[in-house]
Amino acid sequence: MQQFINGLSLGSSYALLGIGVTLVWGVLGILTFAHAQTMTIGAYAALITLDRGYPVIVGVIAGLVVAGLFSGLMDLALFTPLRRKRAPEFAFVIVTIGVSQISDAFEASRTRSQTLPFPRKGFPVEPLTLLGRNVPRLSLVMLVTSVIVMAMLGYWLHRTKSGTAVRAVAYSRDTGELLGINSKWIFASCFFISGTLAALAGIFLAASSGQLSHSSNDAILLLAFAVIVLGGMGSIRGAIVGGLLLGLVSVYATVYVSSVFREAVAMLTILVVLVVRPSGLFGEKATTRV
């Protein structure tokens, strides 16, 4: 039972990661390697604000806005011209690798490659005893946050006019434009929202580990991709279920098989799911993947 709770709490951070990627990659189909850097930038912005003595909520909002602007501007400055030129999809991937390279170098030079302590004061970090079990309170908050964000994203994408416009543009940009949708702003706002969600995950992860460095999010980028691949492309609910499942698999595999799996579970998941069931758990069937 304790293992189950550990798995869920690990999974809740994975789910939050997945939520951040799902909009840009899952819905719009752009594989972005700059996601880890967006998370780090948001966490840095929050850290700077918190160090100035502002309350936690201000710090979180500052992080969200800065990362959102970073992500939205990246879309307007780089992806809009690429889209106009109808560049092949790998061009987007390479541009995001370039962006992550530049911002990583920038952060490393600003912080002199040091790991900074992240203030945990004000975050709900103390453990909670529930039904006689130890439950990390921060994981609970993360789980609740990801479920709320998932519900909001799902409502937005499927029930509102602007969300429907996003899905229309994702399906076919030309058709969307013919229907009078300004695809440029749809893409930019999706990137802005995805940036804020990335920052949310970045801030929570920094608060749970209590430290932050320019490379602290590099390793978990593949985890985020694994969550989306497992949950299924384009499925918001898949991101949550995929994240929780990945956390559970990771914990149980570590306990019953070998600790190797804790690190390798993301890669193995990507490989196995792409080969066996490319559409993931909840994804729609698409022929372009295989």
Binding site: E89, I270, T288
Partner: peptide, 12 residues
């Protein structure tokens, strides 16, 4: 796999 999925698979 094809395209970016091949890229993802090979990264993994």
């Amino acid at each position: 796999l094809r395209g970016i999925y091949l890229a993802l698979g090979t990264v993994a």
